[in-house]
Design a protein around this nucleic acid. Structure first.
Lengths: 277, 277
DNA sequence: ACTCATCACTCGTCAGTACGAGTGACGTCA
DNA sequence: TGACGTCACTCGTACTGACGAGTGATGAGT
């Protein structure tokens, strides 16, 4: 039995011509079913890990057809509320507690070394894949190059052994920065070693990281073992040398429901400061 | 006509008992249709902004039924590749170019002030909503409190006037930090002013930001005007005072396809450093 | 010239039916 | 006791048919 009294939200504020729309019309039957299940989950009637009623049971319970039930379940699935497993049923997904925290605190230890990618002791189950590419519309500007410049590329699959979290790491090295270094012959050098290389060459490095999120492509879904309705956290790190010129570009892609990034922000000289926004 | 030769991937590597699964079986008809359209988009046959063939046309072209076509389209939709508009058709979505870059560079200007939330001149179209809550399982540890401690809460809807990007901002202030300050009477003070308040009280502030991404809840979808298959970027910022004790907790939720966060990382004293990972 | 009803097109929703495919338990058989 | 086939349950896929609802152009009417 559904909520027979569906309050028709007629007077929705006029859309400001965004061209995107997709308003929530609760009138649809499957939306009512979805809302009912969603509420039941939120209420605690179905705690995380619980098996939801089967499709046939939902059909009987709400008196609707199977397409309607499946539509409702599909909605909850794209919201990331449930995990549907073929021969078994629909499991309520727990709160997406990130198992892996990637800390980006710049901290010194006794030897003068410091760490990025804090904590996570990545392992590489496969050999890194080295190749050659050119800058694209997206990567060019970040490296301060035109579109179509030659690059070394290295792809790695990283796995955090304690949590099993997977990550995709890409390193892009312009020919200009590899020139004259051992990178020209060994572009698949570990990022840590690359940094050391440049600091020993007299560079003072700093980094610019931009964090974005998006839905994964099908192949990213499979290689990263992503659940349904799980976004991708994409971190792009540009390493700058002395004089601010970009040296290399790294991209780290991880599962958003297993990973979070932490940054520690502090003013360099804590002197008189007044307004922040 | 579809690719009649479907290579059956029978011997898939045994799942490592993750309990999640969902393997890509290309055998399904609608997957083949989806793949065909996806390739056509990738090839450039349907550039961004283009209208895809209508359902009826796709039915004829691939010789399948309408549910199959709709299933294929739904797949592309959850991948974020297309935007489907009711009476019009399916538009190819362009590359998700973030219009808004929130910079988290800690930079000083002449007056000794510095900015977080760089650039974005947020506006508040509505009055902030102040209320009272208690710490939850998620918020408690961040503030160094037990679960169930009393909090002031303030919710704001922010809009970036130049791009129209929306954001949801939440401020949580423990009673302990509000005590003795004007925050007890005016918890809806602007974060900037709150920071100033504590610095003038002699605190040296620093911040810890953690970035996560997840799919939006239905109400977040509507209030943030989110497209289909668009994740939410959730930034949680804890303000620490002198002595590292957490003072307030802020959460900023924005559309992931219109927003990116940029952090600038530099070692404090650029002396001898060797290894990074 | 302007207004507005109509129509053809689009996607959205819902029903019913059928069969394939994965999972796990149960029971038979060696 | 152990191996294995069967069966009942789950969701996945695909088809048919029908109607509702949003959009835009066309054309009749004023």
């Amino acid at each position: 039995m559904l909520t027979s009294d569906v309050s028709e939200t007629t007077g929705h504020r006029a859309s400001e011509g965004n061209g995107m729309s997709q308003i929530q019309r609760p009138g649809a039957l499957y939306r009512q079913v979805a809302a009912a299940i969603r509420d039941a989950i939120a209420t605690g009637e179905y705690p995380p890990g619980t098996l939801l009623p089967s499709e046939t049971q939902l059909i009987e319970r709400y008196g609707v057809s199977r397409p309607t039930v499946r539509n409702a379940v599909a909605a909850l699935r794209t919201e990331g509320l449930i995990d549907v497993v073929h021969g078994k049923g629909s499991y309520v997904r727990g709160a997406p507690t990130p198992a892996l925290t990637i800390e980006r605190t710049v901290s010194h230890d006794n030897g003068g070394t410091f760490t990025l990618d804090g904590g996570a002791g990545w392992q590489q189950p496969e050999k890194p894949h080295a190749y050659r590419t050119t800058t694209t519309m997206a990567t060019g500007p970040l490296l301060g190059l035109e579109e179509g410049e030659a690059l070394f590329g290295v792809d790695r699959l990283l796995i955090d052994p304690t949590t099993g979290t997977r990550a995709l790491h890409q390193t892009l090295i312009p020919f200009a920065t590899a020139e004259g270094t051992e990178l020209a012959d060994h572009p698949d050098t570990e990022p840590a070693a690359i940094y050391a290389l440049f600091t020993e060459a007299g560079h003072t490095l700093h980094w610019t990281e931009t964090v974005r999120a998006r839905m994964p492509l099908p192949d990213e879904r499979t290689t990263l073992h992503l659940h349904d309705a799980t976004p991708l956290l994409e971190t792009t790190r540009v390493t700058h040398g002395s004089g601010d010129q970009p040296l290399i570009l790294e991209t780290l892609r991880t599962s958003a429901d297993r990973t979070q990034l932490t940054y520690r922000i502090a003013p360099e000289q804590p002197r008189n400061l007044s307004a922040i926004r």
